[in-house]
Every structure is written in structure tokens, then in C-alpha cells.
Amino acid sequence: MTTADGTDRPAPPPDGDAAHASLALLERLADKLGARASVTAVYGESVTRDGVTVIPVAEVAFGFGGGAGRERGSAKTGEGGGGGGGVRGRPCGFIEIKDGSATYKPIRAPWGDVVMPLAALLAGTAVPRIARRLAVRRAR
């Protein structure tokens, strides 16, 4: 169907095909956004300098959901619709190619290197003290 402004748009679905129209819309959105959701969108292109090539590695995920509705009945009227989606990208690391060998170098979060060991140390010292105090209170 061509609109007054000359753009092509899909023909409106028959009354019983609202769910199919929603599904078709979500599929088109997923195709278009999925083609753009890539490692280059998160990190950029690979770089080669001084004989070293760095290739970015990223995790890219997307999800979509939608719905449709229609009220059946002689006195009741209704319409429906809805949809949503999201894309997430996270850099994971990079591959370094140097002198004929490739090495993966992960990007690590400081939480795993600093905060988690400190939390484990704190829990390791606090839990025995709390257990002793509870045992003393129960003995009284």
C-alpha cells in the first residue's frame, strides 16, 4: 500500500490478523536492529599498528516482546497492541595478534579483583564472631 506521501507501508491486516501484524513488526525490528548490533557498534573496528593487530571482542544481545488484543462481543469494542525491545552491548576483551601468535586479553571488572576478595575476608572474620556471640546468648 502506498500512502499519500509516497512511502510504502504494509497494508492493514484483516480483523483477525492483529497478532500476525504484531509478530511481523517485531520480526522487522529484530532484523534491522540485529544487523546494527555488532562488536563494531560497541568497540569499533580492529586496529593494526607496528605489526600488532588488536581485534575487539564484545557481547551483544537484544530482545523484543509484543502483544495484541481485540475484544469480541456485540456491545464491547476494543483494540490492542504494544511492543518493546532493547539492545545491550558490553566489551569483553580483545585479541592481540603479534609475531604470528594470537592472545585473548579479557577486560576484567574491578569488582572481581578487589571488592569480592575484601567481602570474603570481611565475611570470614565476622561470621565466626557472630556465631560465638549467638552461642553465648543461647547458653544463658
Rank of each mutant, 00 (worst) to 15 (best):
L121E: 15
G81L: 04
K98H: 14
E96H: 00
P117K: 03
G100H: 15
G86P: 02
D31K: 12
P117Q: 04
Y104S: 11
K76F: 04
R72K: 10
R9T: 11
A37C: 14
G93K: 00
G6F: 07
A35E: 10
V115N: 08
P128M: 12
G67E: 04
R72A: 08
E59M: 00
G93A: 03
K76T: 03
Y43G: 01
V136H: 15
V87P: 02
H20D: 12
R129I: 09
F94D: 01
A131Q: 03
P110Q: 11
G65P: 00
T77L: 03
A11C: 02
P91Q: 07
G85C: 10
G89I: 06
S38N: 14
E96S: 09
D99G: 09
G81R: 02
P10N: 05
E27I: 07
K98G: 09
D17M: 09
W111L: 15
P56E: 02
A119F: 11
A75L: 10
A35D: 06
D5M: 02
A75G: 02
G83F: 02
T2Y: 05
G73K: 03
S101T: 14
T7W: 06
V57P: 01
M116C: 07
K32I: 07
L122C: 09
M1N: 05
H20Q: 15
R137Q: 14
G112I: 05
G34W: 07
Y43W: 01
A4W: 10
M116G: 08
T48E: 11
A68T: 04
R72Q: 10
G82W: 00
T125H: 13
A123Q: 07
A11N: 09
G34T: 12
K32E: 12
A120C: 05
G80D: 08
R138I: 08
P106A: 15
A120P: 01
A135M: 02
R138G: 13
I130F: 12
E27Y: 00
L121M: 15
G93P: 02
V39H: 10
A61L: 14
G51C: 10
S22R: 09
P56F: 08
R138D: 13
G85L: 07
L118G: 11
L121D: 14
I95V: 15
A24E: 13
V60L: 04
A18I: 02
G82H: 00
V114N: 14
R28L: 14
Y104C: 11
G16Y: 11
E27V: 11
V114P: 06
A11W: 01
R88W: 06
S22A: 12
Y43H: 08
V39G: 12
R133H: 10
P56G: 05
G34L: 12
A37K: 13
G51V: 07
E59F: 02
E71V: 11
I107N: 07
A19P: 01
F62T: 01
